[in-house]
């Protein structure tokens, strides 16, 4: 969470200084990416840096936060969303160049403490009394999906908190403050500090992650290069390695 705050600070700094250089400065790119994409996108960024010496700056946050930043006029080159609904909002605001492409899928999983001390094995277990369950707020894609999954399973949960980012859900579980939370499979995979309890397909929700070039991209070539890399076999294998499903 601290790192995210710093990243946001860096983002503000980069964008506010961005317009001043006219010379052939090293190509630089600002990517607005859903918080859950951070581990995968860091690797993709490194790849891009080493191959094309393209420097990528990320603004990671909840998709809903990114959406409101963009519609309020924040400057960026690429937007990678954790759901199609928020992407649609940005498209309808006329901020997207071309059409968004789905580049990955993610599934939900129940995050529990290492070793699953509370013996949580299904969504139904989350309704047990005395269990501290944390979800993402319904305004966050992961929160919306979690509600859908719980509804499909016919389970009613009384969450202790509705976090504003899916990663905050993960933090609360990994710090031991919450017994369980519903997050993405990719989150559990990359965290390393929690165990995942699978949610069966009939109840699970598959999240579509669309990516798009922003209309006012400063360097649309670089933006296209980033998008292409994400969709390429290299990018896809990185995403899969981080727990996503390929497009």
């Amino acid at each position: 969470m601290i790192r995210r705050v710093l990243a946001l600070g860096a983002f503000v700094f980069v964008t506010s200084c961005g317009g001043s250089g006219d010379g052939p400065a090293p190509a630089s790119l600002t990517v607005f990416a859903a918080a859950s994409l951070q581990p995968a996108f860091e690797k993709i960024g490194k790849d891009l840096q080493s191959k094309d010496s393209l420097h990528v700056t990320y603004n990671y946050a909840g998709t809903q936060t990114l959406t409101s930043q963009l519609t309020q006029g924040a400057q960026g080159d690429v937007f990678a969303s954790a759901d199609t609904a928020h992407m649609t909002t940005v498209v309808e605001a006329g901020l997207i160049e071309g059409t968004p492409k789905v580049f990955a899928h993610n599934r939900l999983e129940i995050a529990v403490a290492k070793g699953n001390p509370k013996g949580i094995h299904s969504l139904a277990d989350l309704a047990r009394s005395g269990l501290v369950v944390v979800l993402a707020d319904p305004s966050v894609p992961a929160g919306k999906y979690a509600q859908q999954a719980l509804a499909k399973a016919g389970v009613s949960v009384r969450p202790a908190s509705l976090e504003l980012q899916v990663t905050a859900v993960l933090t609360k579980v990994s710090l031991g403050e919450a017994d369980a939370g519903i997050v993405y499979v990719s989150d559990v995979r990359t965290s390393g500090k929690v165990d995942g309890v699978a949610i069966p397909d009939p109840y699970n929700v598959v999240a579509d992650y669309p990516i798009a070039i922003l209309k006012h991209a400063q360097d649309s070539n670089a933006a296209f290069a980033f998008e292409a890399l994400v969709l390429s076999p290299t990018g896809q294998s990185i995403l899969v390695a981080e727990g996503f499903e390929g497009a």
């Binding site: 969470m1 944390v134 707020d137 969450p159 202790a160 908190s161 509705l162 976090e163 504003l164 609360k172």
Partner: peptide
Amino acid sequence: TITFAGNLP
């Protein structure tokens, strides 16, 4: 507050 107490109406 959001970090320590969470967010529940």
